[in-house]
Design a protein around this nucleic acid. Sequence first.
DNA 1: TTTAGTACTTTGTATTGCATAGTACAATCT
DNA 2: AGATTGTACTATGCAATACAAAGTACTAAA
Lengths: 109, 109
Amino acid sequence: MNIENTKAQMKKGILEYCILSIISRGEVYASDIIEELKNSKMIVVEGTLYPLLTRLKNDELLSYQWVESNSGPPRKYFQLTSEGKRILKELSETWNELVIAVNRTTKKK
Amino acid sequence: MNIENTKAQMKKGILEYCILSIISRGEVYASDIIEELKNSKMIVVEGTLYPLLTRLKNDELLSYQWVESNSGPPRKYFQLTSEGKRILKELSETWNELVIAVNRTTKKK
DNA sequence: TTTAGTACTTTGTATTGCATAGTACAATCT
DNA sequence: AGATTGTACTATGCAATACAAAGTACTAAA
């Protein structure tokens, strides 16, 4: 029984929602996303984020364009597609339902 | 992008917490657990529950004894060990932290 | 030119929810 | 008594994803 592993398992499925939310507030690139997640005590590593962004792009929830950086290599800036916005709303409901279900199961208010 | 798959992913890591909570309220067997989860809109199937109960038993969070049933095959009744109670408390905190982190990330209150 | 920092890509692993197939026990039906 | 049905549990394989690690590529500074 390893609590760190459980934390990782608990994150599965939830990170999509978090990342779509962050992007919905305006164009960002990967390091922005990692920074915002860290600020919210949601630690996610590159090996998770990049494949996830790729999946979301392949599912047509995201689009991106390359933007020259003035202090390093070019960056991929992401935005939500209209499909991405629709799914984000759905994920929001799904998350809320999950919280309610878990709190009911565990009898927390 | 399949919302049902996302729901399954979101459940990962959380079911332990739910199941330990249910058992903490008194001895139950597997069908009791499935019923309580269903009542809380937390659908879990046998193929998930039994291996999970076995894992928790192997991790020494649960103990069980066989009890004759008066209307069918014998049943395995589970209780929390003291380690199980300790971990349940830890999982409760972990869950609460996750909810806070997600809601902060998604800017929900 | 080399080094360091930044950004992204790729791949393999571990874990777990789900689906499915099966075994076993007890009660009821034929 | 044997067959069927319902209940309870076991075992296995698959899909998906977070993480770790290795690598490529671009830019600026040394």
